[in-house]
Design a protein around this nucleic acid. Sequence first.
DNA 1: GTTAGGGTT
Length: 1007
Amino acid sequence: MFRFFMPPSSASRSVAESADSMGTRRRKRKEQGYEAPSPAAGKPKHSTSKKKKKRGLTKRDCQSLKLLRLTSDFENSACQSFFGSLMQQGALGNFFVHTCYDDNISINHNFWCLEKLGSEVNHVKTVLHPDLTLGKTVEGPSVVHVSRSSSIEEARKGLPIVMMEQEIMEAINGSSIVIICGETGSGKTAQVPQFLYEAGYGSRGTVGYQVRHEKKIREDCSIKFMTDGILLRELQSDLLLRQYSIIIIDEAHERSLSTDILIGMLSRVVWLRQQQEKMHAGSEASSENALTVLKLVLMNATLHVEDFISDRRLFHEPPAVLEVPTRQYPVTIHFSRKGDYGDYLRLASKKVIQIHRTLPLGGKLVFVTGKGEVDYLCQKLRKESQRMERVSKDITAVLEDNEAFKYSGLCILPLYAMLPADEQLRVFRDIPEGQRLVVVATNVAETSLTIPGIKYVVDSGREKVKNYNHRNGLAAYEIKWISKASAAQRAGRAGRTGPGHCYRLYSSAVFGNVFSDFSSPEITKVPVTGVLLMMKSMGIDKVASFPFPTPPQAAALTEADRCLKALEAVVSKGRLTRIGRAMSWYPMSPRHSRIALFQSNLVFAYAIASAAALSLHNPFIIPCHSRGNNENTREELDIDNERDGGRVSPPLKRQRVMGKPKPAVEENHLRFRNHNSDALTVSYLLQLHDLTGTKVEKEEFCRENLLHVKTIDEMSKLRKQLLELIFHLGGCDEEFHGVMEAQRMWNPPGRILAQAICAGWADRVAKRMQGCPKSSDKDLRVRAARYQSCALGETVFLHPSSSVSHSRPEFVVYTELLCTKRSYLHGVTGVKPEWLVKYASSLCNFSAPLLEPRPCYDSLKDGVFCWVRPSFGPHLWPLPLHGVPAENDMVRISIFACALLEGNVLPCLRCIMLRPESLGQSRVFNLLKKMKVGNVIIDRRAILCEAWRKNPQLLRSEIQCWFQEGFRHLFDELWEECRRRFSWRVSSFFLWPRERRRSREEKKQSC
DNA sequence: GTTAGGGTT
């Protein structure tokens, strides 16, 4: 079976496309001077647009919705389905699909002719067609005949990449690895799969897709679209990727973590498949299991391919690199005269107004760094716009109908990823008559989605990045200059539909001297614990020599290694443990997999809820209490009313805009509070959410309680995914229902769950500081609890929003140490110090065995233990005394002998209360001497049992002599009774609770 | 007494 792999590429297109399908962009297309035929004309409309409104516009969501629509639209026919998928690729894709639908594509294997561009033929490609499902190779070259209408042909002619079809296909046929570089708009995403299709790849069967939480793959699927994360998972279970013959990785320049690892992995898979093929070619064996070579196509939007080609370890033979000219409209770049404006928000606002007043019509897109800046700038622009409107009215009143002075208002819309979906969608809807669009956006508009009709871009040149210190785990958000590549991408947003302008709020000198060429790949910036675990599970032990396009920092690998050891996923030599292997199969960070794997049955299900809760961001929205400007909020409400037709109730809307009054919100959040753990607080919240009826009610629940809808929704899906993974795959449906029923009552075993969380975050521990040393005057005023983190020297604080901020446990584990106003602990759970020894022993130091308290025999564990004084982490926090198995043979023998005589090994043999003076007696010496039989040391009940089986009289006389003369006649009976019990069941001795309790009390006294 | 750039299994 032929399958392409296409990680669905940038959602930019998808969103634009989705909006397109809803028929809302026609206005914009008219503005652009053409009217594209509607791909959906005459076909049933799909409900996905509705669905989209409710859900977030994450990149993945867009992909999945779009693909759902496409595959269901076209699923009757394999090729139509495939071309349907290509619809996502922009207007030209639309033309193509439209025609395919109307004109009957013919598929013809072993057909030699290909009609191209309506002119002469002449394009015969010799492409092998190994059909794995049939298990045989189709003889001769195979091409697919496609006839297109003249309008399509015309449109295709305009695409630079079409002229390169032959070159691209020759490269792919001649080389296992090909890199195609072409800027946005070159048509590579839409056309390359078509080229392959026409060449006979994947021309049989249907098109499917898979993203997280959503999968539409039919039996006869031959082309599969998926995200990079999904393929990475598949790679884990089939290193040779037997199902695929070509893999296309789109948007490789984005250098996401998964893409980078995939490229490294695939370089080896390609090689392995070549070896396989050679092996089979040499043998006469049946071709049933024969594997063909695997081809890899990387598609890059920039010419920066150094990382892919320079390191010979990655690709032994240099890949073919093709450059496709772009079809982008010209964008004029305007730099500022002054180098660096600190107050870029003020400047941005000024620039927007200036463009608005002096330049022709066209949408404006402003890039700033975060939600705060977006909101601030929106507010500022609205004020300015209102002021100008008033002035304009005054002037027109004086000059009467003079159009030249008539001011048209600005429609100012915010855009960032965490904005609720319906508010995000406003940028794609029609704006009120007479207004002009201004979108103030974060980076989300740079890579993830494209707003139609943008002619002017105002670029602040900054972005917010999350920095992570691998050594101490301290994270912080920083505002930094973007890279030259990013700046180009932002500017490009002005040239999607016609010539545009980009106003950069920095000078060309700053751009030239300060900006880096490219943004650093994600792998260099994030913890790589999960990456390391996955590689180990795939048998890649020497991660340091893995051919990453860009290797992670050495400190990151060290940290990851230390973390995996702390989680007991690997042993000291780096080998995976059983639990580590299990962890590698969970679709979460290793820490949360560890939590989920803590115990079985009911605890398990709660642990999963906790793991899901910790896997996403904190869902509580911290309301903004600033009073704000009434006029602005009023205006925003009015716009809302216009857009949603008054569907959302005004009080709700007001609440959304202004935030609830503080006490009500706090009271609401208190309802969920677990005083020992943020994770349990959020998992309870998750439970309430999941028990809430319909989707609409769930959303209402979030609004009422000021929660991020998207975050909770994602959390809920993750929880479901994990439960299904565990119960259904294991075939435990009944158990699953039992657990779910029991869980409806929601009575989590808090203590055990806190231990589970402790096991997952064993190396992120903080201890409350006693005596509150203040490092600065500023600290004097802080009332938040002070802690010392095991990873950091300086004082850190419990975040005031944490559930445990009042209980302030002595020891906590935390999921994040984020430096904002101060260094704050987030995701906190209180833990007992003794748990640290149990779940983070790799980070503990232990003293030599103590003489006092003296070692003792533990009847439940059946062993002799001595006490050590543990301390935790680099600050050597003292922990409670801890028992470890005694190493000294004599200590073990004598303590066990003592316990035997005291009846702690076998209660019926309780013969004496040992006193210190008895230690000098010869009967002590005799007993101890007999407890070493050859090489065997009798220091445990189990060993004694085994020894008695061989020699029933062992120790008899040595023990008998401890009984008083008067009782010795009873001894024979007692002895037989004891031995009989031994032979029944070792553990049965200690089912005499009263005896055991007494023995413990005695032990305590002796300690 | 207070934060959230963008992705993903």
